[in-house]
Amino acid sequence: MIHFVLLISRQGKVRLTKWYSPYTQKERTKLSGLVLTRGPKLCNFVEWRGLKVVYKRYASLYFCMCIDQDDNELEILEIIHHFVEILDRHFGSVCELDLIFNFHKAYYILDELLIAGELQESSKKTVARLIAAQDSLVEAVKEEQSSISTIIVQATM
């Protein structure tokens, strides 16, 4: 089981977090230092409080997931890579600014991928189709709202 997903910039700024198990705020803030202080030549697994933190750095972001001690670390690295590929496909070479300004889409993508700390969907095509459907639904609502506001403005003139 995945206990949390954490995306951290190299400067230690948290860009995305999803907690599937309860942790105190003090524990949450210590986690970023755990990964950021490690050297680049060290392995991508860190033991933390009887759990394992698996992380991978892509450009200026660290993608971290915490798992049980007996879970497969390589599978989690694959899930991280799968998440990055989906983000890349959606944003076109995802960067930190994409996550800052479109955090709601990043959370939506993560929720399509993982539910309650378990992998829900492994197909990139299915996730891309679901994201496209969500985007078209949002656009339809925006168009409907703008047409309603236009009607209201015309009625009040």
Rank of each mutant, 00 (worst) to 15 (best):
Y107V: 06
R89F: 03
H3Y: 09
I8C: 10
F4I: 03
R129M: 10
L97K: 02
D98L: 05
G117I: 09
R89T: 09
D111W: 07
G12Y: 07
L99G: 05
V84S: 04
Q120W: 09
I100F: 12
Y23Q: 03
L61C: 07
N72G: 09
H82F: 15
I115E: 11
Y107A: 03
V127I: 15
S136F: 08
I115L: 13
E27G: 00
D71K: 08
K18N: 12
R57Y: 04
F103M: 11
H82Y: 12
H90L: 04
Y107R: 04
A128W: 00
M65H: 04
K105V: 14
Q11P: 00
E121N: 09
T29Y: 01
L130F: 02
E85Y: 01
S93P: 00
L137S: 14
I152T: 10
A140D: 14
I100C: 12
V54G: 06
K30W: 02
K30A: 11
L119S: 03
S9E: 04
F103E: 06
F4D: 01
V127E: 03
K124C: 04
S32D: 00
F91E: 06
T24A: 03
G50A: 07
R15I: 11
L114I: 15
S149G: 00
N72I: 12
F91R: 06
E27M: 04
C43I: 05
Y107N: 11
D88S: 04
